[in-house]
Amino acid sequence: MQYVKNSKISPDEWLHADTDGPLPAAGDLIVPLARWRAEKDQLLARKTRLGVRLASSESPEIIRDDLGRFDLIALEFPVFRDGRAYSYARLLREQYGFKGELRAVGNVLYDQFSFMHRCGFDAYEVQKDIDAQRFSRALSEFTVRYQPDPDGSPSAIELRHQPQRNAKIQRGRP
């Protein structure tokens, strides 16, 4: 498993807490939703950064009021075809204004990177090393997109009808 942050393989400073058992004494910690609910006070008393991990059946709507408490939200992709977390990511970024790390965990493979990135993920626990090594390549497969992206990248419609913006982007290309 490789950790990719901002398109680069990086050391992962975070620990995942198990569903039960004692919490590690130190270190930045990602806890499952159930532990957040059960051990809120204890978790907030730690002096470390805190993240929460949501299963694909757990909508971020349920932690909406607590979003300010988290530096990281990990969204699970239990299998390739379970695409709920794509919607969750967009809600978190575009509607709830979550600015922390949005991490894809679980079945995270090369051919999903660009979809995930475009929905607002910025960190990935990648299953295969070779996929992680080619991360940037996955993001560069398309220069044209038909949908507006949360990062402000223009869609084909915007490029067609905003020539100034188009020219700027053309100039910006190597």
Binding site: F80, R81, D82, G83, Y86, S87, R90, S114, F115, M116, R118, C119, F142, R145, Y146, Q147, D149, A156, I157
Partner: peptide
């Protein structure tokens, strides 16, 4: 057609 082509959110419905 254009909007639905490789939609980042709706490719794994």
């Amino acid at each position: 057609r254009q909007w639905s082509s490789l939609h980042p959110e709706f490719s794994f419905l």
